[in-house]
Amino acid sequence: MRTLVCIKAVPSSTEVKMDPVTNTIIRDGKQSVVNPFDQAALEEAICIKEQLGGSIIVLSMGIPATEGLLRDCLSRGADRGILLSDRAFAGADTLATSYALSCALEQLRTANEFPSLIICGKMAVDGDTAQIGPELATTLGIPSIVNVEKVLAVSEEEITVRRITDLGREIVSCKLPALITVTKDIRIPRMPSIAGVRFGETGPVEVFGAQGVGADATRCGLNGSPTQVVRSFTPERTHEAITIEGTSSEQAAQLIDVLGGFGL
């Protein structure tokens, strides 16, 4: 079975730097990691490959340095990487991003390499939109199941999953090809082996620009993004800590004073 996993590079820390002019996240690649939800998605794909055989493609859109992250995915069990990297993609919102990703998938369809199953992380830890998966499925014209916490059964033709909803859990079956988005806890990502690291260094990662995947430039990057970010800012933290020291009876007395000061 052929599976494709969408990968996003996200900042490795929570201290994200914003571009004050474009109001978009500065992505310099220096401290980027694979979105943890996408790591779990890759692990699910690897488990399916171990069960059914086949291959895994990892697909990303990002700056050239994102190739390193795709190679890391290869070291963990993916077989091939595709990176969409072009200035034309810069500043894309989720609509323009899912369009660009769909172009790469249409190329695979043309080459008769369209995956039976596409797995995306439920969301990215930097944007938190959870839009890419459903948008990509809609663009490709395939069904999608979001918020999957467990794959219960999968074959070449069909997948059955358990998903989380606002009301509880649902068990859903779906014919393939289809797209699922998964929670971070669906699998614990494995570490690469030394053999995997060797493959990651030399394994196939293809890099395409907008033209290379036949994308319409007006639908890519900032041009293709209807989202307008008016302002972005880091919220200020204004909490105070009071340290209470001394014996337990002294601490208790101080605590009573502190709580009393709040009128409690």
Partner: peptide, 17 residues
């Protein structure tokens, strides 16, 4: 075998190790 190894190069993998 080098297949039976965990090679931790990223911060997350090092934390897992």
């Amino acid at each position: 075998s080098e297949h039976n190894t965990w090679a931790a190069r990223t911060a997350l993998d090092k934390e897992a190790q």
